[in-house]
Design a protein around this nucleic acid. Structure first.
Ligand SMILES: [Mn+2]
Ligand SMILES: [Mn+2]
Ligand SMILES: [Mn+2]
Ligand SMILES: [Mn+2]
Lengths: 220, 220
DNA sequence: ATTATTTTTTAGTGTTGGCTAAAATCCTAT
DNA sequence: ATAGGATTTTAGCCAACACTAAAAAATAAT
């Protein structure tokens, strides 16, 4: 049975998130930038994670996750997202406050704890940012979703997730009135800069930049 | 503001618990035995904690807590006990399963988290083992309590806490039917070995050794 | 096909927190 | 008062994980 330290768990989760976000290989510099740890330190850790067979590491050529690594990463992500649900649903945290705390809670070692927590929360399928919660076997049921800026004019759908979970972005969404679950319709698409106007819940119109729209995920 | 590492927090909590349990000074060997860490390592850590002014450390003469140290220790203990309540009340852990998990959760750094948890739990005053939960200012309202083996013959009272929180002891109490809140009366005291017979809730009689009775705390 | 630039790794250092073995100090019994 | 034993500290070592500076490899530009 592979045992990971606190730091190793953080690396593995980061690598998983970077590789899932499109490309299947991730570079040392990507990980360094994402985790805000110097490339030299990353190199060293990649060697160690390679030895533990949770990643596939070829010097100078980035890393891939192994099957074992994916399973472990999904276990950490499961814990992270369940704790996020707990913080929002039970402790009344707002969705921009939970990431930091969940980044600590995700490392608590107790299979019973996480199983009971899941049960207590009613087996939620998505976290407060709309990200799917893997089940205890690491299976993820991900919904097909598309960035809001790619919806055609007059197209409609429902906001189901955000790409960027930074507090700044989430607070901005709160301010303009965009939220997970909102039904939206694209009223206008500005050619010039890609900004768009949307109708939320048939009530309110919101104008947003292409950058903001690109970080909102919609299910049609 | 004094910042403590995970390990330092564990030491400080251990020292607090040992000093509160009677004597005001605690030896290196006591801490070593309690924490299962070699005396040499303890010495080293005591020097560091002394430099951080959370303990009063005179080489070869044990340690005392400083006021600052007591405040920090109580903050950790508060977190530990609140998490224990959460695990038992909300996640249906039994009282012998919570210590290990709470020993990890107590280190999560988030004042907001612990304040919201307290609120969510309804501001509990005691943990599942009957130990008082310090308030956010570190104030502890401790009830006067006495070991069960020191109650006189025919004396009565209510079980309010246990001294020993080991899983083995707690499961034994479950088995014989002793629990926090139970009303008891001492029916017999055996001179020879100090063992006693008690009546629980005017229903059931339990026979127990002096050792067991000594680890049960009663309020009269 | 070289050279220049970027990326990545290696080498060496520091901090934290554990260990064993040896030295220092304290305490107790004579 | 001192010797013996127990306790505690110091010295030296190691693993984990971060860093900077320098070397090596890969990639881009000429
Ligand atoms: Mn984390
Ligand atoms: Mn999330
Ligand atoms: Mn702990
Ligand atoms: Mn307790």
């Amino acid at each position: 049975m592979i045992k990971l330290t606190y730091a190793e768990e953080n690396y593995l989760k980061a690598i998983y998130e970077l590789t899932e976000a499109g490309k299947k290989s991730t570079s040392t510099n990507d990980i360094s930038a994402w985790m805000k740890i110097k490339p030299a330190s990353v190199s060293d850790m990649l060697r160690k994670l390679g030895e533990k067979t949770v990643i596939d590491y070829r010097k100078y050529y980035g890393v891939h996750m192994t099957e074992e690594g994916k399973k472990l990463a999904l276990r950490i992500i499961r814990k992270h997202r369940l704790w996020e649900v707990f913080l929002v649903e039970k402790l009344k945290f707002s969705w921009d406050e939970v990431a930091e705390v969940a980044d600590e809670l995700e490392h608590v070692q107790s299979p019973t704890l996480i199983q009971r927590l899941d049960e207590y929360l009613g087996f939620p399928k998505f976290d407060p940012h709309g990200d799917p919660i893997p089940d205890e076997f690491g299976d993820v049921r991900s919904r097909p979703r598309i960035a809001l800026n790619e919806i055609e004019l007059n197209g409609s759908g429902q906001i189901v997730a955000v790409k960027d979970s930074s507090a700044a972005f989430l607070r901005y969404l709160d301010k303009v009135g965009a939220y997970i679950g909102a039904r939206i319709k694209v009223l206008e698409k500005v050619e010039f800069d890609g900004s768009i106007e949307i109708l939320v819940d048939n009530k309110k119109t919101i104008f947003m930049s292409k950058d903001v729209a690109g970080n909102i995920l919609v299910m049609q």
